[in-house]
Amino acid sequence: MAMTKNQRLVYIALLASQAVIISLIERAIPFPFAIAPGAKLGLANIITCMALYTLSTKDAAKVVAIRIVLSTLLGGTISSFMYSASGAILSFIGMWAVKKLGPNRVSLIGVSTAGAILHNVGQLMIASWIAQTWTVLLYLPVLSFIGILSGIAIGIFANYLLNHVEKLHYYRDLRELKRNI
């Protein structure tokens, strides 16, 4: 039994709203890494991972787009929108490509870490474009290091959710089934 259209719409809306709430909460957490200004935990990446594993690529992209637009409207600025949009687009493409390698080759850890690092790459590219100096990119190794740590943690977390929340589990199996037919 496939997801009905309404089920799918509600599920997309649910994931998107959860992602918005998570990124709002994350904004309220005082900055955890004093050494690397601008670094973030990227908790909203959990939702992107779950969307990628339970929805079609198109619908997962919708979840990400809704999250970025809504969280900008709820207390962002134009520059923060450009930042998060470029980061999210690049990381979404990267995560999708990594996931394409197949579940036998990569786990959620690889997917979320690639997403975290590429998110930083996208942000710094926008920053260097605005600042008109590519030396901003020299900051990348620091951010990548934190991206790896948080990416691994978020991969484990998302994996736990996918395996233990009954509906997610069910949707993922559904998706695998649909692909195999």
């Binding site: 690889g110 990548s144 790896i148 994996n159």
Partner: peptide
């Protein structure tokens, strides 16, 4: 849970960031 390609991708991205 960590598979071989996970490590390959992570290492490649880290090298890329340098």
């Amino acid at each position: 849970m960590i598979k071989r390609w996970d490590a390959i991708i992570i290492i490649a991205l880290v090298l890329l960031s340098f």
